[in-house]
Amino acid sequence: MAKRFGFRKLKKTAFIIATTAFSLISFFNLSSQNEPEVQDEEVSFCLSCHGEETYEISDTVTGEYAKLKMFKELQIDLLKFRQSTHGEFKCTDCHSADFEEFPHPLSAKAEASYLCLDCHGDDEAYASFHFETIEEEYLKSVHATEEGDDFSCWNCHNPHAYKLSDKTPGQLGNRIAENNSVCLDCHGNVNSYYSLIGREKTDLIKSHDWLPNQPLHFSRVRCIDCHAATHDSILVAHMVLPAEDAVKNCVECHSTNSILWGSLYKHQAMTTRNELGFYNGMITNEAYIIGANRNYYLNVISIVIFILVIIGIAIHATLRYIYRHKRNAK
């Protein structure tokens, strides 16, 4: 017990030192504020609670401590955060400075979070991402129309871990798995789905039982490839459709004009050219889609062989007929 008390005391002292140091740095607005070590210090300070499974809180009046669970939604993985697109930021770049108070005041918690367009809207530097179109498409999606303000960018994109997907060859499988895990966080989790939607989630295996080779489809295609409408100017479709409007016609993917060229393989389609004479050759190294991948040369060779065989048979049959006729005439 005494040992535990000592640890608490040590932690309290560390907390006071860290808070004082942080306040001093903020107060003097030192030129070193943008340097990574200062950011690290602030982030590390916040993550001393938000990076843990539990945290301790003290009553300022009685001095009593309580150990509480840090909810999963509020936990941040430092490594994932540092590797993420926004990993260079410090916490108060996006969150209110009021969060520097501990325990956090309710007013800070009630503040609305920044959304993508709050930073990226009308910004030439990010023009190629077409954030405005993404928002337009999102607003037409079933997530926005059905859930309204209960749903935002952050329901799918974790701001503390989000990074652009790895589009290098060989990473397709990982890209699909990562993308689908976003959907499955809610649609594959009874509790998450119920807490957001308020009803029991659909049995995904059952609702997709019409798909031949279901596990293969699940691992080689993203949910959004069938469940979201594509848009020419954005790379990833954001207009998620109601379930009944999802693609259910096999040939929409399994044909040379497969819709997957405008969705899952859009990046490859834009950046690589057909190789080895394959129709849709950009995907031949990573996938095979019946009816969509066809080799031009093999097609030509097979048609030529087929025609030659038919011509050969026709000539042979005609000659047999003519010679037999002549023989009979003799």
Partner: peptide, 9 residues
């Protein structure tokens, strides 16, 4: 399947 065509199946 190999020559699937949405218009002429």
């Amino acid at each position: 399947m190999q020559y699937s065509n949405p218009d002429y199946p």
